[in-house]
Amino acid sequence: MKLNKIHHIAIICSDYERSRDFYVNILGLEVLEETYREERNSYKLDLMVGGEYQVELFSFPESPERISYPEARGLRHLAFEVEDIEAVAAELNNHNVQVEPIRIDPVTGKKFSFFADPDGLPLELYEK
């Protein structure tokens, strides 16, 4: 078996407009397509990260909360590679997004930090 790359990551949000604003206007992901599916009362927003990887943002009425902390099974976090972690963290802080203190990965020696989307989904910044 040969897997080429990650095709997309799907995220279900509780407040579509708030999450759309966060991923598009704060994180700067590019909108590829936005679809309203009337039969499901649901939006599907296709987003591009760095011109390559796709994130799908979904809304569903009354979706249940997912346990995230402590270390529950399932997707742990979504990590974004950045050139300058201090600059990105400062920009997020300017948008009132709290970013944890920057740490050093003991294995790679690279800088990383965590923050959360509007639903508390853990997101990571990882310096290239």
Rank of each mutant, 00 (worst) to 15 (best):
M1W: 02
L3W: 01
N4F: 09
N4R: 09
N4Y: 07
I6G: 00
I6L: 11
H7N: 13
H8V: 04
I9Q: 03
I9L: 15
A10K: 02
A10G: 14
I11Y: 01
I12T: 12
C13R: 01
S14W: 00
D15K: 12
Y16K: 03
Y16T: 02
E17W: 02
E17M: 05
R18N: 04
R18I: 07
S19I: 08
S19R: 04
R20D: 00
V24H: 03
I26N: 00
I26Q: 04
I26V: 11
I26R: 05
I26G: 00
I26S: 01
L27C: 02
G28S: 02
G28N: 03
E30N: 05
V31I: 14
L32W: 00
E33R: 09
T35K: 14
T35D: 01
Y36N: 02
R37F: 08
E38C: 01
E38T: 10
E39V: 13
N41D: 09
N41F: 08
S42Y: 04
Y43N: 12
L45E: 01
L45G: 03
D46S: 10
D46P: 01
D46T: 05
L47G: 03
L47E: 02
M48D: 03
M48E: 08
V49I: 13
V49S: 09
G50C: 08
G50L: 05
G51Y: 04
Y53Q: 11
E56N: 10
F58L: 12
F58K: 07
F58T: 06
F58P: 03
F58G: 05
F58H: 15
S59N: 06
F60N: 13
P61F: 15
E62R: 12
S63Y: 15
S63G: 11
S63I: 09
R66G: 02
R66T: 13
I67Y: 06
I67C: 07
S68W: 12
Y69W: 13
Y69C: 06
P70H: 08
P70K: 10
P70W: 11
G74Y: 08
G74C: 13
R76C: 06
H77E: 08
L78K: 04
F80V: 11
F80H: 09
F80I: 11
E81D: 14
E83R: 15
D84G: 05
A87T: 15
A89G: 11
A89M: 12
A90N: 09
L92Y: 05
N93Y: 01
N94S: 14
N94A: 11
H95W: 11
H95E: 05
H95K: 13
Q98T: 14
V99Y: 05
E100Q: 13
P101G: 07
P101F: 08
P101V: 10
R103G: 01
I104G: 02
V107Q: 15
T108W: 04
T108E: 10
G109I: 09
K111H: 15
K111S: 12
F112A: 03
S113A: 15
S113K: 05
S113W: 04
F115Q: 06
F115I: 08
A116C: 08
A116Y: 14
D117Q: 09
P118Q: 14
G120P: 04
L121D: 01
P122E: 07
E124D: 04
L125I: 15
L125Y: 08
L125M: 15
K128W: 07
K128M: 09
